Simulated scan of single mutants.
Amino acid sequence: MDEQTLAREFTAAVRTEPPLGFDPDEVVTRVARRRHRRRTVLLAFAGVVVAAVAAAVVIPGADVPAPPASSPGIAPRIAPSAGERWWPPGTGQIPQPTDARLNARAPRIAEHLEEVLRKMLPAADPIRRDSLTTAHFGGIMPTSQRGVSITEHGGPEDTGYSLTVEVFVPTNPVKRFQPRQLCAEMKVQISPSTTCRYAAVGTAGILMTSEADTTDREGTLQHGITVTDYRADGSYVLVSLGGTIGVSGPLPFTAEELATLARDPGLTF
């Protein structure tokens, strides 16, 4: 049987099948956009986390206790610094959450995040969750961490913005570093335009804000903001905000608002 006969018979067979009820090309395009959007935020704007190396399935666990409530007291003092404080505090050995703990906390962290975002955003600007993952990640500083990563998309599907919130614990042994060392690496690995600001939080915490202009794969100049709350207990929260590939526009949050989000006590294991 020649190729033309095969082609005619294949076409006739396909025509007799019922319609799919959706456009497969549209679905593939939508998924690809989401993948590109997440990759842009993680690689171009976060500056710290550069690859997920071992993903885990998120499975809620009812047998894992909730995190302890924050003890009442005076909020830790926040003061501008030159980024010279070493982190994490102590000897570089950090208590590690179990896989069961991560899997149980991940959906609760995501739900809390969305409750906070709904209060921060106008009702006419809904958000949609793109992904929720527990994983082992590689990065610049720290070079290895485990935790929860959540990506939210706001605004129109094809434009809008992406917000990634990640709650991490460095894996042991942890190599201590200074935020200004991290910023220097980000200038090399992410963008020379990276600017950083630092604040000392209490006696052991650090708040770091970085901003950078990068060109995406469609040649569009994008501005990204990342705020990281390096906490006294050795965990940290990284919040990254950026636009959609090929679309340039204003971002819905200021660096100060992202800092407030990063320091939210509900974003914890």
Rank of each mutant, 00 (worst) to 15 (best):
E114I: 00
T133G: 12
L117A: 02
P122V: 00
G138C: 06
S144V: 00
A124C: 07
L132H: 10
L121S: 12
L113M: 07
A123L: 05
A123W: 04
H112Q: 13
A124W: 13
D125T: 04
H112A: 13
R118A: 02
T133K: 15
A123Q: 12
F137M: 11
G139V: 02
S131L: 12
S131N: 15
V116P: 02
M120Y: 08
P142R: 12
P126E: 02
K119H: 13
G139F: 05
E111Q: 14
L132K: 07
I109T: 14
A124E: 13
D130S: 11
R128W: 12
A123T: 04
K119L: 10
I109V: 15
P126R: 03
P122M: 02
F137G: 04
T134F: 10
T143M: 01
R129L: 12
L132G: 07
M120K: 13
E115V: 02
A110V: 00
E115N: 10
A123F: 04
G139C: 09
H112V: 03
A124H: 13
P126S: 05
I140A: 06
A123C: 03
P142K: 11
S144D: 03
M120T: 06
A110I: 00
L117H: 05
S131Y: 08
L121H: 13
D130K: 04
D125Y: 15
A123S: 11
A110H: 05
V116L: 10
L117D: 04
L132Q: 14
A123P: 01
H136W: 02
P122C: 05
A110F: 10
L113K: 01
I140D: 09
G139I: 03
D125L: 12
D130C: 09
A124M: 05
F137P: 04
A124Y: 13
P126G: 05
A135R: 04
D130Y: 09
R118E: 03
A123G: 05
I127G: 15
A124D: 15
P122S: 06
R129T: 04
G138I: 01
H136S: 06
P126N: 03
L113W: 08
V116A: 06
A110N: 02
E114L: 03
A135T: 09
G139N: 13
A124L: 06
D130E: 14
R129E: 12
A124K: 08
T143S: 09
P122N: 08
A110P: 00
E115G: 06
H112M: 07
T143P: 00
I109Y: 14
A124Q: 11
G139E: 14
S144G: 02
R128S: 14
A124F: 12
S144W: 01
P126C: 02
P126M: 05
V116R: 09
G138T: 07
A110R: 01
P142T: 09
V116N: 05
A123H: 07
F137V: 02
K119Q: 10
G138K: 07
E111L: 13
H112Y: 15
D130H: 08
H136M: 03
P142A: 14
